[in-house]
Structure formats: C-alpha cells, structure tokens
C-alpha cells in the first residue's frame, strides 16, 4: 500500500519547517500497522513534492524503522543533485515521479543514481512509446519501473501493456475506491485486476473500449476533429524529388479532404518553393 502521511503537515510552513512532534503524530497509522502485522504488508510513502531537502531527510530518517517500500516525491523534482543527497541519507529507495515528462526530464535523475525506482505516468509523460523508452533507460542503470495511476481506467490498460512486456517492471499502482467506484462505469471490458494482480489484457489493441453509455450522458461534452489541417505536401510529388536532405517521413496522408481551396493553394505554393530550393541546392552539390 501507499500512504502520504507527511502531506498535510507540510502546509503550515510550505515544507520549510517540520516539528518532530507533528511528524510523530502523522506516522501513527504506519506505526500501528507495523506493531500489529509486522512486515506482512509493504508500505510506500508519497510526499507529493512538499518539502525542502533537510525536512525530506528528516522524514526519511524518522521512517527508517518502518522499512518503507519507497520514498516518493518528498521534494519537488527541481534538482537531481539534491535528490541524490536525499537518497544518500536513507536506506529506503527513492522513487520518482509521475510529474517528470519525457525521457529527457527523467534522464539526469536516473543517470546520477538519485532514482532507484522510476514511476512514469503513461498518460502524462508521452504515452506507451515514451514509457517504453524510459524503461529502457532505467534498465541500463538496473533500476525498475513502477507505473503511476490515480488517473483513469485507460491508463491502467495502457500500463498493463508496458508491465507485461518490459523486463524491469516492479509493481503497478491502482486506487481501490477509483477501481470499484467509477472506472468500470466508463470502460468495457473492465480492468483485469484480481487477487492483488493486474493481469495481461486479452483483447487486441489496448484491450478495452469506452462504453457507449458514456457518449449518451447528459453531462457529456464531445468534440470531434476530422479535418486534415497539416501543412503537408502531396506524397507523389515528394517522392519524385530525389532529395538528399529531406529524410522526413513520406507517409503524409494524401487526402485533401477538409482543406479549403485557399489553404490548398497556399500549401502548394510553399511546396513548390521548397522543391525549387532543394533542386537548386542539389545541383550546387553535384
């Protein structure tokens, strides 16, 4: 389980000052669990990025006796060196973070050793493609991935695809009141979560669909985009240019549906101009 006992006590000082007495009170639930059931249940701590470095270290130290599964986002993720100092001050692994977007934001935290568990949010950081790449980056540092949820049912289906296929997946987040409370109202089939496991989806693709009823709700807003507004260039003309510099995809959709005639003319002019430039520069070269 994951718990965030330090989140509320950060508010009065904006995370700049922490009285040990306040912390002691906040940690009471975890202490009681450990007293009653020992290590039967693993407990992670989520800090939601509230604290300055000394207070983060203070919290991590105070929680050492509880054998925490991970310390997540005790500080906001502004500085990989600071997070490394926190990791060096505690034996619990530091876990980061759903709020890092794309492999380029994850890179320094993973490479400098600050992150011992990597927690991308698939639907924030760049989707299935990017989470795969983040997992590869983590794998070369021998670090596992524990995808983030608390967002929605489609996220968990997408995460399931990642969790089943990458070798370095540790564990998957889910929020029980969300799962039982509303996720199943929106997707069909529902999430394959049973007996403490997320199972591999069975259907082709992501493995679920938005329910029809969702589109018929009285509070629904639906917006549709079906116009091709890319300033792309007609395929066959690109193919005919033997162009040494342009290695961009040639798989632009050829369809001109939805473009106004003016836009069409404008696009064509841009294309004609660039084609001329390319031919000129090519003849310069040869």
């Amino acid at each position: 389980m994951k718990h965030g006992p330090s989140i509320t006590i950060a508010t009065p000082t904006d995370g700049q000052l922490l009285h040990p007495k306040d912390l002691d009170i906040a940690l009471k639930p975890i202490r009681e669990i450990r007293d009653a059931v020992g290590n039967d249940i693993m407990i992670a701590n989520d800090g939601h990025g509230k604290w300055a470095l000394p207070q983060a270290i203070q919290i991590a130290e105070a929680m050492e006796p509880f054998d925490i599964m991970w310390q997540e986002d005790l500080m906001p993720l502004m500085n990989p060196s600071s997070l490394l100092r926190l990791q060096e001050a505690t034996s619990a692994p530091i876990c980061i973070s759903e709020r890092l977007l794309s492999r380029w934001q994850f890179r320094e935290f993973i490479e400098n050793g600050a992150a011992r568990i990597v927690m991308p949010d698939l639907i924030w950081t760049g989707g299935i493609s990017e989470v795969y790449k983040i997992a590869v980056m983590a794998s070369v540092q021998q670090v596992p991935v524990a995808p983030h949820d608390a967002t929605g049912p489609v996220n968990i289906f997408a995460c399931a695809q990642i969790c089943m296929s990458i070798p370095n997946a540790m564990i998957m987040e889910h929020v029980r009141p969300f799962l039982n409370g509303w996720y199943s109202d929106f997707v069909e089939p529902n999430l394959p979560i049973e007996h403490g496991w997320l199972h591999a989806p069975q259907e082709p693709g992501i493995g679920t669909r938005l329910r029809k009823q969702v589109f018929e709700r009285s509070d629904v807003t639906i917006k549709v985009t079906d116009k091709d507004v890319r300033v792309g260039l007609p395929d066959e003309d690109w193919e005919s240019v033997s162009d040494p510099f342009v290695t961009t995809p040639l798989n632009f959709d050829n369809s001109r549906n939805g473009r106004s005639e003016e836009l069409e003319a404008e696009v064509y002019d841009i294309w004609r101009y660039r084609k001329q430039q390319i031919i000129e520069s090519e003849s310069d070269q040869l």
Binding site: R103, W104, K133, V136, M137
Partner: peptide
Amino acid sequence: RKIAILASTH
C-alpha cells in the same frame, strides 16, 4: 532498439 533509445536521450 534499446541502444538507439539511449543514444536519443543524449
């Protein structure tokens, strides 16, 4: 493919 991804981060 993994090596290409690592290179891309740099």
